[in-house]
Design a protein around this nucleic acid. Structure first.
Length: 152
DNA sequence: GCCAACGTTGGC
DNA sequence: GCCAACGTTGGC
């Protein structure tokens, strides 16, 4: 089993929104970055656990845990001209973009903030804290996963 | 709202 | 294939 972190802006789709979804499950659409696409298409498997990270907000940080419930499949929002994530170069017979389905597992007892994560030397190699850190989907090593949960 | 750090696009 | 211009992300 592998561990991941996925970012979302709480103003657009926060962990509360996931919790309110039918079956508390949602397709993680709209990722338009090739590195993130590759991970969702090739590497993320049902059963994998995912940190839900709130970005672009007052207190960015890890707020909960999700589980992958469906492996990578074509992101159909790319096919819909009326969708904000429409991309004409992605076609149903040769899709460019992929997504996974995730299910709410639980909220963390508290927001483990970016600020706090940055203070931990144990997390220096965490992808979230590395150069650029703009990927919206990234892997988390098992040791990092356990360490972060230990902060809760 | 600013701006640094990207990734993408397109002219050449 | 290079690289400048542009758009986006996301912390602050």
């Amino acid at each position: 089993m592998n561990y991941w972190l996925m970012k979302s802006e709480p103003d657009t789709f926060g962990i509360d929104d996931l919790q309110r979804k039918p079956e508390q499950t949602e397709h993680w659409d709209g990722v338009r970055n090739y590195q993130a696409r590759n991970m969702m298409r090739d590497d993320m498997q049902p059963g994998d656990l995912v940190f839900f990270y709130h970005s672009n907000c007052a207190e960015p940080g890890i707020v909960g845990i999700m589980q992958v419930v469906k492996a990578g499949y074509p992101d159909f929002t790319a096919f819909d001209p009326d969708n904000i994530h429409f991309d004409p170069k992605s076609r149903p017979d040769n899709p460019t973009w992929f997504m996974v389905d995730v299910k709410f597992v639980r909220e963390l007892a508290r927001n483990i903030t970016l600020k706090e994560l940055k203070e931990k030397s144990e997390l220096a190699e965490l992808a979230l804290l590395r150069r650029g850190n703009r990927l919206s989907v990234m892997p988390v090593g098992a040791a990092h996963w356990d360490f972060i949960l230990g902060l809760e």
